[in-house]
Nucleic acid binder design. Sequence first.
DNA 1: CGCCAGGGCCTCA
DNA 2: TGAGGCCATGGC
Length: 220
Amino acid sequence: MTLMMIYRPLLEYFGPQNWWPMQRGFRPPEWEVCLGAVLTQNTNWSNVEKALSNLKASGIISKQDILRLGENELAELIKPSGYYNQKAKKLRILASFNGKVTRNNLLSLWGIGRETADSILLYAYNKPYFVIDAYTRRIFSRLGLVQKDSSYEELRHFFERNIPRDTAIYKEYHALIVELGKRFCRKKPLCNECPISHFCESAPSGDRDECRSRKFPKHR
DNA sequence: CGCCAGGGCCTCA
DNA sequence: TGAGGCCATGGC
């Protein structure tokens, strides 16, 4: 079993997710992707949309707009996204960053951890970093392809080694993982309706392929 | 009402 | 280097 053998049925089942538009010739505004990447930390995207529409309704879009605003006023506008005091601080720090956009430079900023950094690098700057989140860890450990306690960097390298180095695929795959996690591979999984249960070690045995070759060694 | 969502930081071993 | 506590709103 390969990672692309899982990608294909997910794409067929859910269709292209089109998170941040990824067509040729179109780049989403980098700063707007950064806004979303911070606001969505441990938060439902529908709450992020409320925060983003508050910002837009107030004409607050650009980095300069964010920095012109006081931290408390910014916090008030992004309140629906939760953790609004922390996120207001994080956004001001990120908005004032003017250095070269590298992973290490992003990680050096307070409030930007591995997942947020990789989301920004991939979706805003089109750099081939695979984004790992809680769904990724849950889904692929249930599938039996990785260990539950693998570190972030171990998981990221595992995906980057086993997927074609194509940012369009990275973007789509991560979005599909999130969709599968929300719809089927929940904390209490809905294996009976899951489109990839036949690949899964954790699914009830009736839904599973009993005779399949394991192409990957268990990831440590 | 409880649970959880596209995390990250700090503290304390 | 990892577990646990903290940050917080809104939808179901």
